[in-house]
Every structure is written in C-alpha cells, then in structure tokens.
Design a protein around this nucleic acid. Structure first.
Lengths: 234, 234
DNA sequence: TCACCCTTTTACACTACGTGCAAGTTTGCA
DNA sequence: TGCAAACTTGCACGTAGTGTAAAAGGGTGA
C-alpha cells in the first residue's frame, strides 16, 4: 500500500541500471530533498530542535509524505550513515574470498577514506556532537552492516573445511564493527570535521591500527600494552 | 524538579548502605512495581501491544508518575538489562589491576553465569524474540557498560608506562562488549530460556571461548579458522 | 488526444508519547 | 505540631506515527 522506505537509491540503481523512469526520479528527488532539508535544519537549529513538520515544509511536501519515506527524523538523518555503510559492504564483498576477514575489512575501509565519501558522515557526527548515544536508526544502520559482515564471513567459512562456528562469526563481525567505530570516534575526537589530506591519512592509519589490534588480540608484546605502531595521541 | 530515574536500586543501596528511609523504600517499591507490571504485560500481550497507561494501571500508579521513573516502556524493560550489566561492571572492578583486561572480563562474566542472575535477562531476551534490533534503552545500557569498561581500562593503563592510547581503549572495550553479546546471542539461540546446569555451563564456555577468540585475534591456527576449543554447535 | 489503471501525494482523524505546570499528598525534621 | 522538602497526580499541550479515503500524477494502449 504505502511506500516501503527500505531500499537505498544506490541499491535500487544497482539492481535496475537501465530504467530511471519519471516516477523513480521523482521519488529519488523527494528522498534527497528530505535528507537535505533535515541536514539543513540540523545545521541551523541543532539536534532535537525541529519537528517532522519543519522538515516536510522545508522539503516542500506534506507531513504525511515524509512518513512515506522515513519513519522518523532520526531515520532521515541516518540515511547518511546508511549510505556510507552500504558503500563499505559493497567494497567488502568485492574482496577475494580467500582473504582473511580482518584484512578484507581493512582494505574495504581504505577505499572509503576519501573526502567525498567521509565528509557527510563526518558532518553528521560533529552536528550530533558524537554524543556516544547514537539515534536508534543510526545504530540500526551499524547493526545492519554487522549482519552483512557476518553473512559474508559465513559464506567464506562454509567454503572451507568445517562448518562455521556461529560464535566465531558473530564475535568477529561485532568486533570489526566496534573497532571501526572506535577508530572513527577517535578520529572525530582528534580532528573534528577536518577533511584535509593529513587528517584523512590519520583516519586511514587509525583504521589500520584498529584492525591490527583486533588481529593481534590486543596484546602488543604479550601483555596488554597500549600505544600502537604509528598513530600518536594529540 | 522531577525525579531523576538514573540510579538503579542496587547502586543507591551500595552508595547508602545504612539509611533505607521510608521515601527510598517507597520509591524502590514503586520502581519494582513498574518493572514487574511491564514484564507481566510483555508476557501476556507481547512486545508493542501495550501502552504506558496499561503499565501504570497495572502498577497502581498514574501515567504521569510512570514518566517520573522511566522515559518510556522500553526503558522500564531495559532496567532488567541495566541491572545485569551494573552487576557485571561491579564484578569487573573487583578484579586485580594488574590482570589483563580480557581475563578480568572473563572472570567477571563467570561470576554472573548463575541462574538467579541470568534468568531475568534470558526471559527478556526470549520475550522480545532476540529480534537483533534491541530497543533504544537496551542499547544504551550496553553502551553504558562499554564506557565503564573503557574507564577501568584507562585507569589501569595510566598506572603503567606510557599514557593510554585512546584507540586501544575504545576498540578493546567495544570488542569485549560485542563478544559478550555474541556469546549470549548464540546461547539464547541454542538454548532458549533453558537455565539448567548444563545450559549454564554451555553459556560459561561460550563466554570463555568468545574472550579467547578476542585474545587470539580470531586466528585459531594462523588462518581465520572457525570452530573453537570446546563449544559444539548443536 | 483520450481513457484507463496504477502509483503517489495529501488531508483528516485518531491513538499514544512525553513534558511543563500547578495543584494535592506524604515524608522528614525541628 | 508545624514547616519545608519530596513525591504524586490531573490537566493541558505539542508532537509522533498510522489508517483511510479522496485527489493528483504518471504509464500505456487505442
């Protein structure tokens, strides 16, 4: 009956590369107008200081139509994160199946540490003042990503000797997500919304370090010693 | 003005061991009545099929008073998780400061794998059908626990040679939480709400295995091989 | 161009959430 | 006993989110 707000434009475009019909163009434009309006209001009024009606008015649609696209203001904002993580999963799936999961994750993340890709996420993070308590939709996006990683790891494991241990898969995927989040949090904390080459290089190094920590079991020399290879605390 | 709903009864009792004044007793009783009513309604009607007013009526209080204690139905139910995790942190803090964090986590979790402690959490999990998308308050409880672990790890690291690397602390704490959650998810998936000695033994083994996976960098023999030491897939 | 059908938007109504406020009630304390 | 603080309650208000039915827009074939 009503529109399902699930598929991201990029997904739909990937599945239907040919026919950008007028209806789909309108929908994509409306969706974009909503997220733009929501981000603009976030910038101007701050988190929690605007309503769905504000967004709808700014986007030039009715309040009811907003809810045809997103379930809440948080969900509209979280589409930014969703887009980024969908991108990450896409890169992750492109890695060779015989590569260790941790390395695949690292390589996939490297491919995303460019200004254009990171900028929206960085802005969203700073505007919501990395309050550590993400919105529900935000957390759902990360959890969705975790499930995707689990699925890929499961596929890879099923192609090898024994059947996959569910604990191994879930613990690994969850840890990868946690470490990725940790690296980004530290980066945002140190650099704010700085997107300079030096700052992005530091982000890459943090992501590499985080995956290395995970791969080494958090024991640098046999005991739980902090301070990894390259990244320096400010 | 209004009552702050932050402190758990156990915390308040721990900070003020002597004076259980009449007011505090009343508040504790009301809080307990609310969570009991919420759990009963969850059992009888299922998640999402009852309102705040239903809970308030069942607990014998006004709707407004409910909101003096909890910000939402989710928050009332999440007090179960909150209690469990507060307990875990308490155990965690009792461990010797020179012990590796991962081992402290393991030991703390061992102390909680008894029927009385796990039962409420297990029931909550099964009643909400481990839908993988926890409520906001539920996730907040886990995140609060993560921050506590980070704090303890930071304290321990600051007592050793170099200053603590923020990335190390955050990645470690996040991974510990993720692996703990993974172990519990797998246990709930395999055993449902089974609280028999054998089932609890399996939970303990899963928790041990999860921490071992983390400590070994998820590489059992040098390559990412699944199937850990003792736990068997059903 | 028109007519027809399907999709999308919109207005309206309704339930429920969460909060400020100003009472009323209970508890602690002198 | 009386006062002050803490706590509960009812009321009102704005907002969230959803069902429904009617209107507007787009696709398609004659």
């Amino acid at each position: 009956m009503t529109i399902s707000a699930d598929p991201t434009p990029s997904e739909a475009a990937a599945q239907a590369p040919a026919p950008p019909s007028r209806r789909e163009l309108n929908k994509a434009a409306t969706r974009q107008a909503i997220t733009d309006a929501a981000l603009a209001l976030l910038r101007s009024k701050g988190p929690g200081n605007f309503t769905v009606e504000d967004i709808a008015d700014a986007a030039g649609i009715s309040r009811r139509t907003f809810f045809n696209y997103f379930g809440s203001t948080d969900a509209a904002l979280a589409s930014v994160t969703h887009g980024f993580l969908d991108n990450a999963i896409q890169q992750f799936r492109l890695r060779p199946a015989d590569e260790p999961v941790l390395q695949s994750a690292q390589e996939a993340l490297m491919a995303l540490a460019d200004p254009m890709t990171v900028a929206p996420l960085a802005e969203l993070f700073t505007l919501t003042q990395q309050s550590s308590l993400m919105s529900h939709s935000e957390l759902e996006a990360w959890d969705h990503c975790r499930e995707q990683i689990t699925a890929v790891a499961r596929d890879r494991a099923s192609a090898t000797p024994g059947a996959a241990d569910e604990l191994y898969l879930r613990a690994l995927a969850g840890s990868v997500i946690s470490c990725g989040k940790a690296a980004m949090e530290v980066w945002f904390f140190r650099r704010g919304a700085d997107l300079s080459p030096a700052s992005l290089a530091e982000l890459r190094q943090l992501l590499i370090d985080a995956m290395a920590l995970l791969g080494s079991g958090f024991t640098i020399g046999g005991t739980p010693a902090p301070s990894s290879s390259a990244s320096r605390s400010s």
